[in-house]
Design a binder for these strands. Sequence first.
RNA 1: GCCCGGGUGGCGAAAUCGGCAGACGCAACGGACUUAAAAUCCGUUUUUCCGUAAGGAGAGUGUGGGUUCAAGUCCCACCCCGGGCACCA
Length: 824
Amino acid sequence: MAESVYDHDQIELKWQQRWAANPALYKADAASDASAAPKYYVVEMFPYPSGRLHMGHVRNYSIGDALARYMWMRGYNVLHPIGWDAFGLPAENAAIKRNMHPQDWTRSNIQEMKKQMLRMGFAYDWATEIATCEPDYYRWNQWLFLKMFERGLAYRKKAMVNWCPECATVLANEQVIDGCCWRHETTPVEQRALEQWFFRITEYADELLKDTYDKLEGGWPERVLSMQRNWIGRSEGSEIDFAIEGSSEKIRVFTTRVDTIYGATCVILAPEHPIAQALLDDAGKAKAKHLIDARKQQGPGELIKDGAPTGHYAINPYSGERVPIWIGNFVLMDYGTGAIMAVPAHDERDFDFCTTFGIPIRSVIRPVDGALDENPKAAFCDYGITEKSGEFSGLPSADARRKMNEFAEAKGFGKAAITFRIKDWGVSRQRYWGTPIPMIHCPKCGLVPVPEKDLPVTLPYNVKFTGRGRSPLAEVPEFMNVKCPTCGADSQRESDTMDTFVDSSWYFYRYCDPRNTSAPFDSAAVAKWFPIDQYIGGVTHAILHLIYSRFFTKVMRDLGLITNSEPAQNLFTQGMVLGSDGSAMSKSKGNVVDPEEMVGKYGADTCRLFVLFANAPEKDMPWIESSVGGPRRFLERVWRFVTRNAERTADAEWVAAEGSSDADRRALRKLHQTISKVTEDFDNRWHFNTSIAALMELMNRLYEDEASLSRAALDQILPNVTLLLAPFAPFIADELWEQLGRTGPAFRQPWPQWDAELAKEDLLEIPVQVNGKLRAKIIVPIGTPQAELEKLAQADAKIQPLLEGKTIAKLIVVPDKLVNIVVR
RNA sequence: GCCCGGGUGGCGAAAUCGGCAGACGCAACGGACUUAAAAUCCGUUUUUCCGUAAGGAGAGUGUGGGUUCAAGUCCCACCCCGGGCACCA
């Protein structure tokens, strides 16, 4: 075979067809006897089927694919599935804006994206493909919902939603832009209270937090863990009851600084607090409503503190003091108890609020080594020593907190308490394109779950999408009208659908048993594959998806469905792909690059190599298309080298060089060093940019000595180069493999082994420093002993003059590394 | 404000455990090949100064200090950029 031209289209289309003809190619081995290969379960976060693959996907899936192929070559039994996160708002927006049915739109997008993925050559087992919008998947969302309802983990309560008065509809958070509706940019969004469904994730808050330390540390990126810990936001403090003067009701406040309670000069309620609503007159209620709506419209960080007195008073249970009760916009209803005691002397926010409204400031904590500041200009928030605190005076903050908690408990007006920042997960969406919540509202029996045998509750197809009014499902009588399963009375279905994060919270379990019609999955099938060995996705999901799926795992464990407590042993978060302007690629910025264009021009192999070569995968990747020539030229060089050397025998020049063992030695040494380098990159840190750089170095070396390489050396070099390339550029690898006369897919060959002896350099260049400055280099055999290095370094022609007339104070010799002579 | 990342040539980046800073690639320039161009192959490319040259001397990883024989790497303080959270009591 002679050198030929690298024609990516011809090669890649040929292999795409061959692979498609063999669907078992990327199938995991179902056999589970002890002698079988060890399992490896690698999952990349499944995409939302927008219709087009974007560069972020290409990056994510190229990383995962390289890993999957490598693990196959290392002899593992690899499960590498893919699916579609197919429910969601964009489908509905498309319906409103372009009059396309969400289901048709979604299904055709899936077909389109699947085509693109096949073109990229990703090694997925398509037999496991799932789409969350199909009833055979979402029925198990409903089934899990019912199980959670049975256990009290799914419940209903009133909650605020964004409401656009113009559309007369509920808006998702992402449809609210600067406090206004996405379709009416001058209409402020209002807050309305609706009965909605929640998952009791707070029940698992402690375990979710604890396992970030006990189970995930080491396997998950530290920054993801720290984001989750902040999100869970565990906080130790006290709950204290303030009696309301002239009422039997009490206001319960949460504070982390009960030691400052003698400095409390008012109690502040969230405007929506039920007690506030009871205490306020009509004018006060109007003010409260104003505070609530205004808060939503203000961007984060710019809320100006506002509030009003209720005209009522509360009694400090420690001091017996009478303090005014206020409402304040900075007090959050859904954190703690929705009420605080304001201690302006020792809390910045309270200081701010109280100075605005002329509420007194009283210091009760002094610095450990200072005096009490009676007229503070700012809040003193550090721990210190209590003063003016009755019987608790003179104690360090920590002791005061403990004693005061004990006191409150003994007297029955309070206790030590732990509060979490994380809230129960609101799963109701007033939307069409999601999983119907399997509940029935019966006028007689109340809330009745849909019996399991009636699942799935399927989405009706004929629905009008006006973008107005309540949930679209509520307008479909055939869907809504149903007999109560308990008493048979005319009833209404729940018209809300589930948050799409429900779909993605357990999809990787379904992959293990994707066509099961009698359960979400077979427990034994899951036990075989879980936990996921490697989960890969964007850091954008660091909190929501990754905490919800951890929650689901714990719930499913407690339901007896699975035995693992965490879904993924290892998590890898890749960086974003940035546009040429350095900001995230987005349609609105117009800096999006379509992978398909690039694949057309350069081929999928080049495209994959390009995204992996640009930089380390966990870092954000700036998009500089002009550098794509590098990876492309590299593949061309590999192609030419392998094709023209595959059968080279009768070349006179070459025959003459047959004895040239130096070239062989150098080439083989580089080959084995490269195998070692690429293997280490896979095993330790996935810096594929350096793996590919190493392959490029190898090619450069091979070109240099090409004419002198022996047949024997080439017979070792050519197949190994091909195999080293296989995880990154599967098309060219399979083609070259075939051209080398081999059979079977390249990614199923054993991964090349390196020979440490062959990889070893025999001569080393050792830098010689004088006083830390590089002055000379000596060439020595590897392993030259310390004494010998000392002698050689001092004898060097460049070093000697520098030593003349000086005394050697110190001689540092690191064998095979460097010599440093310290002179005086 | 708090919590994470990060700052290295004209550009993307390497430097994995404190040991030769700039591997690999892009762009640029030069050479070979060619009637010519493209492609390809080979070479140069951090920077300043001295030298006709071979070569030599110095500086250099955001800034300022420190530890060390030796610092991009460790410590302290600060500046800038990106991301997350943001009145969480």
